[in-house]
Design a binder for these strands. Structure first.
Length: 516
RNA sequence: GGCGCUAUCGUCUAGGGGUUAGGACGUGAGAUUCUCAAUCUUAAAACCCGGGUUCGAUUCCCGGUAGCGCUACCA
């Protein structure tokens, strides 16, 4: 009845990485499919690690994807809301102050801890049971503390409470509250400097769990679609939502759907630190992926339309997307030092490139040529585009595939390539190659520079020389392109133009002559 | 250690009590072609292990194993 509201909530601790991008895409697709609203929320509660540069880089990545969001927020601007919520939870007795000094490094068991049956830390009983009077006194004295949720315990008198939710992907999930630790809502405000403790009661910064839930409630998020790494955290979130019910009477507990993780080829979680730029979406952009191809690829990781289709446009994805199609196992995204992109991503990109109208592709190609220092006249790229369209997999490949169209002087090449090899012999017929070029020179000087005329004239010339197409065309191709592998000859000649062709063929003849 | 999630070709996946276990990428071979590419045909390639349930399990159940996640005053 109400249209769904989803959110994508990245924390700005680095560039936007592919796993986050996929989470965003799935959220966006879900919203689009169901006529809902996409909220972008920057979860920047961790002041230690967040940087403005990261925020910008995340926007850069998201903008490139081209999927628009409808609302935008920053958690850091909503601090008061979070603190008020924490206060309300505390006032209700659902949270308590923990004066245990924040520990640094790996969790130690030095303090007063209470362990579950076999080890899991649940709370510091001395803190949990501390009287309100003592707690107030110590807080008033300026002693730093964290605020912890008082997770309901069954004890031995009542039956342990079981937390429960139905995940859109993983199905019903349950966990006894007894196994959930007293997680923090507010971090301690740190060590008071020089006795002048200005630390008020609630100076602690909200934790992710608190801030995230408060905002989800306040923004009336209806569907939380996020990485599977939050699956077990969800029980904590259920508790927070419950504690917040009075503050947000219009907020119904959201539906959850957890997404399988994207992992590196060795099975480890994708990490910016460990895997570097290959996990950044801007790396894909810079290499020449089309946003639609990238989105297509990411969608196929952990989701399937179940009809054997692979190439899908954004519109088709919107039509086809559903949580039922989401897989439960982690998906490997392939990359290595030598080839940083998954083969399937590259293939899909080539498919999308071929599906693009020439004008559009030419436009997309322009910045890559510019980057390489080529600034051809208008229309030039458009003329070249159809010739390389089927020969490039990434937009960036275009430069290497078409450079000879734009340079004044061809890069030096081995004149031996002008000479087609003869079968069974180690060397070709150099004299014949030279005759081919001389003949071509004469023919091109007088032939109309259109495909059919060139085709006809050059094939006739080959017949007169007693040559088949292969040995006839290779010398010409190498002469005008500077390499053996290039787009089809006649189209290439046409785009290059008579003057350039004749000049380059002349140079090739000279090169052969110099070789003896 | 505790709790949880997961397990089909190298990779992404479809499928599901009885199938020649399907598709895609990649790889091999062939066709086509003025080279390259594209395209087409084709080949090799998988149900983690052990128990149960069953006439019959890759599929359902249990256990094991492995991977991953959570177990922070990170998100």
């Amino acid at each position: 009845m109400n249209s769904p509201r989803v959110r994508f909530a990245p924390s700005p601790t680095g560039f936007l990485h592919v796993g986050s991008a996929r989470t965003f895409i799935f959220n966006w697709l879900f919203a689009r499919r169901n006529r809902g609203t996409t909220v972008l929320r920057i979860d920047d509660t961790d002041v230690e690690r967040n940087t403005e540069a990261s925020v910008q880089s995340i926007f850069e990545g998201l903008r490139w994807l081209g999927l628009e969001w409808d609302e935008e927020y920053r958690q850091s601007e909503r601090l008061e809301l979070h603190k008020k919520a924490a206060e309300a939870i505390f006032a209700r007795g659902l949270a308590y102050r923990d004066f245990t000094p924040a520990h640094t490094g790996p969790a130690s068991t030095e303090f007063d801890t209470q362990s579950g049956a076999q080890g899991a830390w649940l709370c510091n009983p001395g803190m949990r049971e501390m009287s309100r009077e003592e707690s107030d006194r110590r807080a008033a004295a300026g002693e730093p503390f964290a605020l912890r949720y008082r997770v309901p315990r069954g004890g031995d008198s009542s039956i342990a409470r079981v937390l429960r939710f139905v995940d859109g992907v993983y199905g019903e999930q349950t966990k006894p509250a007894d196994e959930v630790e007293d997680f923090a809502l507010l971090r301690s405000a740190g060590v008071p400097k020089d006795g002048s403790s200005s630390l008020g009661l609630w100076d602690g910064m909200p934790t992710y769990h608190l801030a995230s839930c408060v905002d989800d409630a306040d923004l009336r998020i209806s569907h939380i679609i996020r990485g599977q790494d939050h699956l077990t955290n969800t029980f904590k979130h259920l508790l927070i939502f419950e504690a917040l019910a009075a503050e947000f009477p219009n907020f119904a507990s959201p539906q959850f759907a957890h997404l399988p993780l994207l992992v590196a080829p060795d099975g480890s979680k994708l990490s910016k630190r460990k895997h570097g730029p290959v996990v950044s979406v801007t790396t894909y952009r810079d290499a020449g992926f089309l946003p639609a191809a990238f989105v297509n690829f990411l969608c196929l990781l952990g989701w399937s339309p179940k009809n054997d289709r692979e190439y899908l446009t954004i519109e088709e994805l919107v039509q086809l997307f559903s949580l039922e199609g989401v897989n439960r196992a982690n998906a490997v995204i392939n990359f290595t030092e030598e080839s940083p992109f998954d083969d399937k991503a590259v293939w899909l990109n080539a498919e999308h490139i071929r599906a693009l109208p020439v004008e559009e592709l030419a436009r997309d190609l322009e910045p890559f040529f510019a980057e390489a220092g080529f600034h051809p006249k208008p229309g030039r790229i458009l003329a070249v585009t159809p010739l390389i369209r089927e020969r490039i997999k990434l937009l960036g490949d275009a430069v290497g595939a078409a450079d000879f169209f734009f340079v004044d002087e061809l890069a030096p090449y081995d004149p031996a390539e002008l000479i087609p090899p003869k079968k069974g012999e180690s060397t070709g017929d150099a004299a014949m190659a030279r005759r081919v070029l001389e003949t071509a020179s004469e023919v091109l000087a007088v032939t109309n520079f259109d495909h059919d005329s060139l085709d006809k004239a050059l094939r006739e010339a080959a017949a007169q020389l007693g040559l088949k197409a292969g040995p006839m065309f290779q010398p010409i191709r190498v002469a005008v392109c500077g390499r053996k592998n290039a787009p089809p000859l006649f189209e290439t000649l046409v785009v290059l133009g008579r003057d350039v062709c004749l000049k380059r063929i002349g140079q090739a003849i000279a090169a052969l002559a110099a070789q003896g």
